[in-house]
Write a protein that binds this DNA or RNA. Structure first.
Lengths: 120, 120
DNA sequence: CAAGAATAGGAAGATATCTGCCGTTTGTCA
DNA sequence: TGACAAACGGCAGATATCTTCCTATTCTTG
């Protein structure tokens, strides 16, 4: 799909939004599974199918500097009797990217009538 | 199904056999997933469906004293980048139960010729 | 503008354990 | 012998992350 540097795909937008909201609600971090449930609720979507899509997006975003992460302390996970999580935080760059991506929503919004009314 | 104390269901037999063989082959412990794959090869079976059956059997056998287990060190699991395992060992009681269960195999083994040689 | 390169998304499975529900089977007791 | 209770086995899903393969989409370049 060859991305234009700096642009965000819908899933990335969702991740940033959900991630920021989770943190605002008091969580210092968020992890993939949590985000998956969060997004599922909002978008109702069956996106991320087996979560593969989501984890790849998280990776990608971290490499792009929009997120930073660290592995949860294995002892803590063990104490809770569940698999270890990878804990993410939205970086300043991530917040900026979200803001930038949101603003242009009005630029170029030329009310294009979805060409395609004339069948073939 | 109401079990007669001391008897072993086929799955338990398989677990004990596979468990002992794995240890003989040099592994100090074995874990559920491993046993599942081991049994799948031998019996080819799609038993243990989602492994639920297997884990319940392992639990049951531990309570009966045929197996003993301990959680793997979470740090070790983390270092290997995989979920923690529960490490099992066959106890002396387990080996004895296997021997006892195997012996009666000859009693009543009347060489029944698997009726069905006449092709319909 | 068309063709090619690159990447996003979907499907599936590996890794590991456990819980709940339901149906079937089996042992025991009346 | 018949009926009940208990337990076993199968199915499904929760918890969490990652990889591979294939398809679809989009950007860029000629």
């Amino acid at each position: 799909m060859r991305r234009k540097a700096g642009s965000l795909v819908p899933l990335e937008l969702s991740i940033l939004e959900a991630g920021i909201e989770l943190v605002v609600r008091g969580a210092p971090y968020f992890h993939g599974f949590l985000i998956a449930k969060e997004i599922k609720e909002r978008e109702d979507a069956r996106l991320l199918t087996a979560h593969g899509t989501l984890y790849k997006a998280l990776d990608r975003m971290q490499k792009a500097g929009l997120l930073e992460s660290e592995w949860e302390n294995p002892i803590a996970a063990a104490a809770d009797g569940r698999p270890r999580r990878r804990l993410y935080r939205v970086t300043a760059a991530g917040e900026a990217a979200l803001a930038t991506a949101r603003a242009p929503e009005r630029v170029g919004a030329t009310l294009k009538p979805e060409a395609g009314s004339v069948t073939a």
